[in-house]
Protein backbone atom coordinates (compact mmCIF):
# COMPACT_ATOMS: atom_id res chain seq x y z
CA UNK A 1 0.00 0.00 0.00
CA UNK A 2 1.23 3.43 -0.86
CA UNK A 3 0.28 6.33 1.30
CA UNK A 4 0.80 9.75 -0.17
CA UNK A 5 0.46 13.25 1.16
CA UNK A 6 -2.90 14.89 0.99
CA UNK A 7 -1.57 17.96 -0.86
CA UNK A 8 -1.32 15.87 -4.01
CA UNK A 9 -4.81 14.66 -3.50
CA UNK A 10 -6.13 18.17 -3.26
CA UNK A 11 -4.59 19.04 -6.59
CA UNK A 12 -5.88 15.89 -8.21
CA UNK A 13 -9.41 16.66 -7.09
CA UNK A 14 -11.56 17.35 -10.10
CA UNK A 15 -14.99 18.74 -10.61
CA UNK A 16 -17.41 16.57 -12.49
CA UNK A 17 -16.81 17.52 -16.09
CA UNK A 18 -19.50 19.52 -17.85
CA UNK A 19 -20.73 17.69 -20.91
CA UNK A 20 -22.31 19.14 -24.01
CA UNK A 21 -23.58 15.74 -25.15
CA UNK A 22 -27.12 15.89 -23.68
CA UNK A 23 -27.60 19.37 -25.09
CA UNK A 24 -26.56 18.21 -28.53
CA UNK A 25 -29.11 15.41 -28.33
CA UNK A 26 -31.99 17.44 -26.99
CA UNK A 27 -31.10 20.81 -28.51
CA UNK A 28 -32.67 20.29 -31.92
CA UNK A 29 -36.03 19.28 -30.46
CA UNK A 30 -36.01 22.13 -27.95
CA UNK A 31 -35.13 24.76 -30.56
CA UNK A 32 -37.77 23.29 -32.81
CA UNK A 33 -40.48 23.65 -30.20
CA UNK A 34 -39.28 27.11 -29.26
CA UNK A 35 -39.62 28.18 -32.88
CA UNK A 36 -42.86 26.43 -33.76
CA UNK A 37 -44.71 26.47 -30.44
CA UNK A 38 -43.29 28.96 -27.96
CA UNK A 39 -42.68 31.82 -30.39
CA UNK A 40 -46.21 31.55 -31.87
CA UNK A 41 -47.59 31.30 -28.36
CA UNK A 42 -45.82 34.50 -27.30
CA UNK A 43 -47.01 36.11 -30.50
CA UNK A 44 -50.54 35.00 -29.66
CA UNK A 45 -50.13 36.49 -26.19
CA UNK A 46 -48.98 39.72 -27.76
CA UNK A 47 -51.92 39.63 -30.16
CA UNK A 48 -54.35 39.18 -27.29
CA UNK A 49 -53.54 42.68 -26.05
CA UNK A 50 -54.38 44.27 -29.39
CA UNK A 51 -57.45 44.95 -31.46
CA UNK A 52 -55.91 43.39 -34.56
CA UNK A 53 -58.35 42.44 -37.31
CA UNK A 54 -57.91 39.77 -39.95
CA UNK A 55 -58.44 42.08 -42.90
CA UNK A 56 -55.75 44.55 -41.88
CA UNK A 57 -53.47 42.63 -39.54
CA UNK A 58 -50.74 45.26 -39.28
CA UNK A 59 -53.10 48.02 -38.10
CA UNK A 60 -53.73 46.51 -34.65
CA UNK A 61 -53.21 48.76 -31.63
CA UNK A 62 -52.43 47.78 -28.07
CA UNK A 63 -55.55 48.03 -25.99
CA UNK A 64 -54.29 46.57 -22.75
CA UNK A 65 -56.61 44.13 -21.06
CA UNK A 66 -59.69 45.28 -22.96
CA UNK A 67 -60.08 41.94 -24.73
CA UNK A 68 -59.89 40.06 -21.47
CA UNK A 69 -62.26 42.50 -19.76
CA UNK A 70 -64.68 42.05 -22.59
CA UNK A 71 -64.49 38.26 -22.45
CA UNK A 72 -64.77 37.94 -18.69
CA UNK A 73 -67.73 40.28 -18.74
CA UNK A 74 -69.55 38.43 -21.52
CA UNK A 75 -71.97 35.58 -21.03
CA UNK A 76 -70.95 34.07 -24.37
CA UNK A 77 -67.44 33.33 -23.16
CA UNK A 78 -68.63 31.62 -20.00
CA UNK A 79 -71.10 29.65 -22.04
CA UNK A 80 -68.24 28.37 -24.18
CA UNK A 81 -66.30 27.48 -21.03
CA UNK A 82 -69.26 25.49 -19.73
CA UNK A 83 -69.69 23.85 -23.13
CA UNK A 84 -66.00 22.88 -23.11
CA UNK A 85 -66.29 21.39 -19.64
CA UNK A 86 -69.44 19.45 -20.54
CA UNK A 87 -67.92 18.15 -23.78
CA UNK A 88 -64.72 17.19 -21.96
CA UNK A 89 -66.49 15.49 -19.08
CA UNK A 90 -68.66 13.35 -21.35
CA UNK A 91 -65.92 12.38 -23.79
CA UNK A 92 -63.39 11.59 -21.05
CA UNK A 93 -65.80 9.55 -18.94
CA UNK A 94 -67.31 7.85 -21.99
CA UNK A 95 -64.03 6.92 -23.64
CA UNK A 96 -62.41 5.84 -20.37
CA UNK A 97 -65.34 3.62 -19.41
CA UNK A 98 -65.76 2.10 -22.84
CA UNK A 99 -62.02 1.79 -23.42
CA UNK A 100 -61.44 0.05 -20.09
CA UNK A 101 -64.31 -2.38 -20.61
CA UNK A 102 -63.03 -3.12 -24.11
CA UNK A 103 -59.55 -3.76 -22.80
CA UNK A 104 -60.84 -6.20 -20.17
CA UNK A 105 -62.94 -8.00 -22.75
CA UNK A 106 -60.05 -8.28 -25.18
CA UNK A 107 -57.45 -9.25 -22.56
CA UNK A 108 -58.77 -12.84 -22.18
CA UNK A 109 -59.30 -15.45 -24.79
CA UNK A 110 -62.63 -15.97 -26.52
CA UNK A 111 -63.39 -17.24 -30.03
CA UNK A 112 -62.77 -14.55 -32.62
CA UNK A 113 -60.70 -12.42 -30.28
CA UNK A 114 -58.08 -11.39 -32.84
CA UNK A 115 -60.71 -10.22 -35.32
CA UNK A 116 -62.63 -8.40 -32.58
CA UNK A 117 -59.51 -6.62 -31.43
CA UNK A 118 -58.61 -5.57 -34.95
CA UNK A 119 -62.07 -4.10 -35.51
CA UNK A 120 -62.23 -2.48 -32.10
CA UNK A 121 -59.02 -0.51 -32.58
CA UNK A 122 -59.78 0.54 -36.16
CA UNK A 123 -61.70 3.76 -35.36
CA UNK A 124 -58.44 5.19 -34.10
CA UNK A 125 -56.97 4.82 -37.59
CA UNK A 126 -59.90 6.42 -39.41
CA UNK A 127 -59.00 10.00 -40.38
CA UNK A 128 -61.09 12.58 -38.56
CA UNK A 129 -62.52 14.02 -41.76
CA UNK A 130 -63.76 10.58 -42.81
CA UNK A 131 -65.27 10.13 -39.32
CA UNK A 132 -67.11 13.39 -39.70
CA UNK A 133 -68.34 12.47 -43.16
CA UNK A 134 -69.84 9.17 -42.08
CA UNK A 135 -71.31 10.50 -38.85
CA UNK A 136 -72.94 13.40 -40.69
CA UNK A 137 -74.45 10.83 -43.00
CA UNK A 138 -75.56 8.64 -40.12
CA UNK A 139 -77.06 11.66 -38.31
CA UNK A 140 -78.74 12.96 -41.47
CA UNK A 141 -82.30 14.11 -40.68
CA UNK A 142 -84.13 12.50 -43.58
CA UNK A 143 -81.89 9.70 -44.82
CA UNK A 144 -79.67 8.92 -41.84
CA UNK A 145 -79.47 5.48 -40.33
CA UNK A 146 -79.70 6.90 -36.80
CA UNK A 147 -83.19 8.12 -37.40
CA UNK A 148 -84.09 4.95 -39.27
CA UNK A 149 -83.04 3.00 -36.20
CA UNK A 150 -84.86 5.16 -33.65
CA UNK A 151 -87.96 5.16 -35.83
CA UNK A 152 -87.86 1.39 -36.12
CA UNK A 153 -87.62 1.15 -32.33
CA UNK A 154 -90.65 3.45 -32.05
CA UNK A 155 -88.65 6.30 -30.53
CA UNK A 156 -89.40 8.73 -33.32
CA UNK A 157 -86.95 10.80 -35.31
CA UNK A 158 -84.61 13.48 -34.11
CA UNK A 159 -82.56 16.28 -35.58
CA UNK A 160 -79.25 14.87 -34.39
CA UNK A 161 -77.21 17.72 -35.74
CA UNK A 162 -79.97 20.31 -36.04
CA UNK A 163 -81.82 20.07 -32.72
CA UNK A 164 -80.00 21.99 -29.96
CA UNK A 165 -80.95 19.35 -27.40
CA UNK A 166 -79.09 16.64 -29.35
CA UNK A 167 -76.14 18.52 -30.84
CA UNK A 168 -73.80 17.89 -27.92
CA UNK A 169 -74.78 14.24 -27.63
CA UNK A 170 -74.08 13.66 -31.31
CA UNK A 171 -70.67 15.29 -31.15
CA UNK A 172 -69.76 13.41 -27.98
CA UNK A 173 -70.80 10.07 -29.48
CA UNK A 174 -68.70 10.61 -32.58
CA UNK A 175 -65.71 11.72 -30.47
CA UNK A 176 -65.98 8.79 -28.08
CA UNK A 177 -66.18 6.41 -31.02
CA UNK A 178 -62.99 7.85 -32.45
CA UNK A 179 -60.84 8.10 -29.28
CA UNK A 180 -61.89 5.00 -27.30
CA UNK A 181 -59.39 2.69 -29.05
CA UNK A 182 -56.50 4.75 -27.73
CA UNK A 183 -57.73 4.25 -24.16
CA UNK A 184 -58.25 0.58 -24.87
CA UNK A 185 -54.73 0.08 -26.23
CA UNK A 186 -53.09 1.83 -23.30
CA UNK A 187 -55.19 0.00 -20.71
CA UNK A 188 -54.50 -3.26 -22.52
CA UNK A 189 -50.80 -2.56 -22.35
CA UNK A 190 -51.11 -1.87 -18.62
CA UNK A 191 -53.11 -5.06 -18.06
CA UNK A 192 -50.47 -7.09 -19.85
CA UNK A 193 -47.80 -5.62 -17.62
CA UNK A 194 -49.42 -7.14 -14.49
CA UNK A 195 -47.02 -9.94 -13.52
CA UNK A 196 -48.58 -13.38 -13.90
CA UNK A 197 -47.32 -14.56 -10.49
CA UNK A 198 -49.41 -11.89 -8.79
CA UNK A 199 -52.55 -13.44 -10.23
CA UNK A 200 -51.31 -16.84 -9.14
CA UNK A 201 -50.43 -15.66 -5.65
CA UNK A 202 -53.92 -14.27 -5.11
CA UNK A 203 -55.42 -17.44 -6.52
CA UNK A 204 -53.41 -19.54 -4.06
CA UNK A 205 -54.48 -17.21 -1.27
CA UNK A 206 -58.04 -18.00 -2.27
CA UNK A 207 -59.11 -14.55 -3.42
CA UNK A 208 -62.33 -14.29 -5.45
CA UNK A 209 -62.29 -12.45 -8.75
CA UNK A 210 -63.52 -9.22 -7.18
CA UNK A 211 -60.69 -9.03 -4.67
CA UNK A 212 -58.19 -10.11 -7.32
CA UNK A 213 -59.34 -7.16 -9.35
CA UNK A 214 -59.21 -4.80 -6.41
CA UNK A 215 -55.88 -5.95 -5.01
CA UNK A 216 -53.92 -6.91 -8.10
CA UNK A 217 -55.31 -5.31 -11.22
CA UNK A 218 -56.46 -1.95 -9.91
CA UNK A 219 -53.13 -0.85 -8.41
CA UNK A 220 -51.50 -1.52 -11.78
CA UNK A 221 -54.31 0.16 -13.67
CA UNK A 222 -54.92 3.30 -11.64
CA UNK A 223 -51.71 5.17 -12.48
CA UNK A 224 -52.29 4.43 -16.16
CA UNK A 225 -55.92 5.50 -15.98
CA UNK A 226 -54.98 8.73 -14.27
CA UNK A 227 -52.47 9.62 -16.99
CA UNK A 228 -54.89 8.67 -19.75
CA UNK A 229 -57.59 10.77 -18.09
CA UNK A 230 -55.24 13.74 -18.00
CA UNK A 231 -54.25 13.30 -21.65
CA UNK A 232 -57.85 12.82 -22.72
CA UNK A 233 -58.85 15.95 -20.79
CA UNK A 234 -56.25 18.26 -22.24
CA UNK A 235 -56.80 16.79 -25.71
CA UNK A 236 -60.55 17.39 -25.33
CA UNK A 237 -59.92 21.00 -24.36
CA UNK A 238 -58.13 21.63 -27.63
CA UNK A 239 -60.04 19.27 -29.94
CA UNK A 240 -61.18 21.22 -32.93
CA UNK A 241 -61.61 19.33 -36.16
CA UNK A 242 -64.29 16.83 -35.28
CA UNK A 243 -66.56 19.47 -33.69
CA UNK A 244 -65.95 22.11 -36.31
CA UNK A 245 -66.61 19.82 -39.23
CA UNK A 246 -69.62 18.10 -37.63
CA UNK A 247 -71.56 21.12 -36.39
CA UNK A 248 -69.42 24.22 -36.83
CA UNK A 249 -70.27 24.97 -33.21
CA UNK A 250 -74.03 24.76 -33.75
CA UNK A 251 -76.84 24.11 -33.58
CA UNK A 252 -77.41 27.48 -31.84
CA UNK A 253 -73.91 27.41 -30.34
CA UNK A 254 -74.56 24.33 -28.16
CA UNK A 255 -71.24 22.81 -29.30
CA UNK A 256 -69.23 26.04 -29.34
CA UNK A 257 -66.29 25.09 -27.17
CA UNK A 258 -63.50 27.55 -26.46
CA UNK A 259 -61.39 26.51 -29.44
CA UNK A 260 -64.39 26.74 -31.79
CA UNK A 261 -64.99 30.19 -30.33
CA UNK A 262 -61.36 31.12 -31.01
CA UNK A 263 -61.60 30.00 -34.62
CA UNK A 264 -64.92 31.71 -35.25
CA UNK A 265 -63.78 34.98 -33.75
CA UNK A 266 -60.63 34.89 -35.85
CA UNK A 267 -61.95 33.72 -39.18
CA UNK A 268 -65.69 34.50 -39.14
CA UNK A 269 -65.63 37.75 -37.18
CA UNK A 270 -62.02 38.53 -38.15
CA UNK A 271 -61.23 39.70 -34.61
CA UNK A 272 -57.73 38.27 -34.21
CA UNK A 273 -57.02 40.05 -30.94
CA UNK A 274 -60.16 38.85 -29.24
CA UNK A 275 -59.61 35.33 -30.60
CA UNK A 276 -56.08 35.26 -29.17
CA UNK A 277 -57.37 36.41 -25.78
CA UNK A 278 -60.00 33.66 -25.82
CA UNK A 279 -57.36 31.09 -26.68
CA UNK A 280 -55.13 32.29 -23.86
CA UNK A 281 -57.92 31.89 -21.34
CA UNK A 282 -58.56 28.41 -22.70
CA UNK A 283 -54.89 27.57 -22.27
CA UNK A 284 -55.07 28.84 -18.70
CA UNK A 285 -57.93 26.43 -18.06
CA UNK A 286 -55.78 23.54 -19.35
CA UNK A 287 -52.93 24.62 -17.11
CA UNK A 288 -55.20 24.69 -14.08
CA UNK A 289 -56.51 21.20 -14.80
CA UNK A 290 -52.97 19.90 -15.28
CA UNK A 291 -51.81 21.51 -12.06
CA UNK A 292 -54.74 19.97 -10.19
CA UNK A 293 -53.82 16.61 -11.70
CA UNK A 294 -50.24 16.83 -10.51
CA UNK A 295 -51.31 17.87 -7.01
CA UNK A 296 -53.73 14.95 -6.81
CA UNK A 297 -51.09 12.61 -8.20
CA UNK A 298 -48.52 13.72 -5.67
CA UNK A 299 -50.98 13.28 -2.83
CA UNK A 300 -51.87 9.80 -4.09
CA UNK A 301 -48.18 8.91 -4.32
CA UNK A 302 -47.57 10.20 -0.83
CA UNK A 303 -50.43 8.10 0.47
CA UNK A 304 -49.05 5.00 -1.15
CA UNK A 305 -45.63 5.83 0.18
CA UNK A 306 -44.17 6.05 -3.30
CA UNK A 307 -41.54 8.69 -3.83
CA UNK A 308 -42.08 9.64 -7.42
Amino acid sequence: MTVTTSARTQRATRRRRFSWTPYLFIGLAVLYLLLFAVVPLLKGLDLSFTNTRLLNPTAGKYIGFDNYDHLLGSGAFFKSVVTTLVYTAFTVVGSLALGTVSAFVINRFFPGRILARAVMVMPWAVPTVAVVLVFRWIYNDSTGVANAATAALGLGERGWLTDPSYGMLSVVLATVWKVTPFVMLVVLAALQSVPEDLYEATKIDGADSYSTFKLVVLPFLLPTLRVVALLMTIWSFRRFEIIWLLTGGGPVDVTTTIVIDVYRQAFNNSQLGLAAATGMLGLLLSLIVTAVYFVVEQRANKQNGVNA
Binding site: A29, V30, L33, L34, F36, A37, V38, V39, P40, L41, K43, G44, L47, P57, L231, I234, W235, F237, R238, F240, I258, V259, I260, V262, Y263, A266, L272, A275, A276, G279, M280, G282, L283, S286, L287, T290
Partner: peptide, 21 residues
Protein backbone atom coordinates in the same frame (compact mmCIF):
# COMPACT_ATOMS: atom_id res chain seq x y z
CA UNK B 1 -42.12 20.56 -19.21
CA UNK B 2 -41.80 22.27 -22.59
CA UNK B 3 -42.43 18.95 -24.33
CA UNK B 4 -45.42 18.20 -22.14
CA UNK B 5 -46.83 21.71 -22.38
CA UNK B 6 -47.17 21.54 -26.16
CA UNK B 7 -49.86 18.91 -25.57
CA UNK B 8 -51.99 21.66 -24.06
CA UNK B 9 -51.60 24.26 -26.81
CA UNK B 10 -54.77 24.55 -28.86
CA UNK B 11 -54.03 24.57 -32.60
CA UNK B 12 -56.82 27.09 -33.06
CA UNK B 13 -54.89 29.57 -30.90
CA UNK B 14 -51.59 29.05 -32.72
CA UNK B 15 -52.95 29.00 -36.24
CA UNK B 16 -52.92 32.79 -36.65
CA UNK B 17 -49.40 33.45 -35.30
CA UNK B 18 -48.08 30.42 -37.18
CA UNK B 19 -49.73 31.69 -40.35
CA UNK B 20 -47.80 34.94 -40.16
CA UNK B 21 -44.60 33.10 -39.20
Amino acid sequence: FLFFATQMLPEALLVVPLYSL
